[in-house]
Amino acid sequence: MAISYWRRRDRYYRLLGNKCTRCNAEYYPPVYICRRCGSESLIDAEMPGTGKILTYTILREVMSGFEGQQPIIIGIVQLDNGVKVLGQIVDTPIDALKIGCKVRTVFRKIREESSAGQIYYGYKFTVLC
């Protein structure tokens, strides 16, 4: 896990996806081949840091590795460039959550291996409205 995290840290820290140089379609997670035009010429592109909630849930039973964090709010956010991104939503009272809420990215701890293991960081979202 530590190495697969290292490999993707720019993706997680900066919401670094990619973009088709032919048709400008943007992707997060990045794609290998453009889904819209089939081009294989793609360059890294940072996604915009703001968007709106399309759907969300409050997960009460978390997976192994996330113990102690429950409940966690997870949402699918449509960023301002139209790309849909999955992410946790933090610092938001449950009753303030609504489809359509504006959000922005924040830099947070995702989880840690153990008190002696590595800490994994990445983007999450926080509600603006």
Binding site: Y13, V90, V106, F107, R108, K109, I110, I119, K124
Partner: peptide, 16 residues
């Protein structure tokens, strides 16, 4: 700080 915050996350937020 929240449970998913530490000096690293706060440093990044302030720095940005």
């Amino acid at each position: 700080a929240s449970l998913d915050e530490d000096i690293t996350t706060m440093a990044v937020e302030a720095a940005r």
